[in-house]
């Protein structure tokens, strides 16, 4: 795995995205910062509802308003704040310079359009291609994502394809214009492991060939270990830890990260030992959290944790942790 120290192409700074619902304000993303560089894969992990998808939708300015609103922060793409862009400028960027693979391939493809038309639309929007050039590019993309017999598949509808093929069509659409940033929201969660392996290979090839930056959202720590150079761990709308992938797995410092690593059954476990549970559950984001959001589930919690919100601190080597009592032991992986 190559370490990248390129210049960041995307810098998210103190992003806050809230939803104003009838039963109160949901602070889905509450002060999140991170950046990605050319050729780098950044993974974002965390439990269901912690704000991963809302973060990625915010980057593309796809938050429905109302009820949602990006209330503060900045999202700099090559230094320019996307939050200041007009809707038209955003349309030019989406699907071209920054593209996204959505969490649910079944619902994100249009059922009444052939897959050729759907990929073609992206190309027509962003490229001045002739009809023949469009068709040639579509076939090229279908081949690239390993769709068998692309000449006949091009005229088929989404329901005629398997789940794995539909996900590959989504990827082909996302790659159509050689994006600089690919945001992949759980791109393989709905797929079988053998198909997942194909898709991950494809994403790695893309990264190595075009030097695209990838933001990979997943809850599978195996996928993280295999794909990412840096990892952001989120909990209840906040970033609680960020580190390079080796440090994160070898010396996780946030009790939640350590808990995640320990609670997971692993193929390389010796005998089946009892899993270490994280007691309790994720807090509701409808009430404002005082102190550390993880405190009710944390075995290291102290008095201070229930009163003061922990601040992110660099523990060396760009290893950021938001915790008053960080874990300091090395785990054996």
């Amino acid at each position: 795995m190559s370490q990248t120290t390129g210049k960041p192409i995307l810098e998210v700074n103190d992003l806050r995205t809230y939803f104003y619902t009838r039963d109160g304000v949901v602070r889905s993303v509450d002060g999140v910062s991170f950046s990605v560089s050319e050729g780098e894969t950044l993974a974002i992990v965390g439990e269901s509802g912690c704000g991963k998808s809302v973060t990625s939708l915010s980057i593309l300015r796809l938050i429905a308003s109302p009820p949602g609103k990006i209330v503060s922060g900045s999202i700099r793409f090559h230094g320019e704040d996307l939050l200041g862009f007009s809707d038209e400028q955003m349309r030019d960027i989406r699907g071209d310079k920054i593209s996204m693979i959505f969490q649910e391939p079944m619902t994100s493809l249009n059922p009444v359009l052939t897959i050729g038309r759907q990929i073609g639309e992206v190309l027509e929007l962003h490229r001045q291609y002739t009809k023949e050039e469009v068709r040639r590019r579509i076939l090229e993309l279908l081949k690239m994502v390993n769709i068998p017999e692309p000449e006949s598949r091009i005229d088929e509808y989404p329901h005629q394809l398997s789940g794995g093929m539909r996900q590959r069509i989504m990827i082909a659409m996302a790659l159509a214009c050689d994006p600089e940033i690919l945001i992949a929201d759980e791109p393989t969660t709905a797929l079988d492991v053998t198909i997942q392996a194909q898709i991950l290979n494809l994403m790695r090839e893309l990264r190595d060939r075009t030097r695209a930056a990838i933001i990979l959202i997943t809850h599978d720590l195996g996928v993280v270990a295999e794909m990412a150079q840096r990892v952001v761990v989120m909990y209840a709308g906040r970033k609680v830890e960020e580190a390079n992938v080796f440090d994160l797995f070898e010396k996780p410092m946030h009790p939640y990260t350590l808990g995640l690593l320990n609670s997971m059954p692993r193929l390389d476990d010796a005998a089946s030992k009892r899993l270490v549970e994280i007691p309790g559950m994720v807090p509701s984001m409808r009430t404002e959290i005082v102190g550390c959001a993880f405190a009710p589930r944390c075995s290291s919690a102290s008095e201070r944790c229930t009163q003061e919100s922990p601040v992110l601190k660099d523990h060396g080597n760009e290893h950021w942790v938001a915790c008053w009592n960080p874990v300091l032991v090395k785990v054996n992986v």
Binding site: T194, A225, E226
Partner: peptide, 14 residues
Amino acid sequence: EALLSAVPIPDPKH
């Protein structure tokens, strides 16, 4: 064999 080999291992050094 293929199924087992396709499972990602949560260890970046693996």
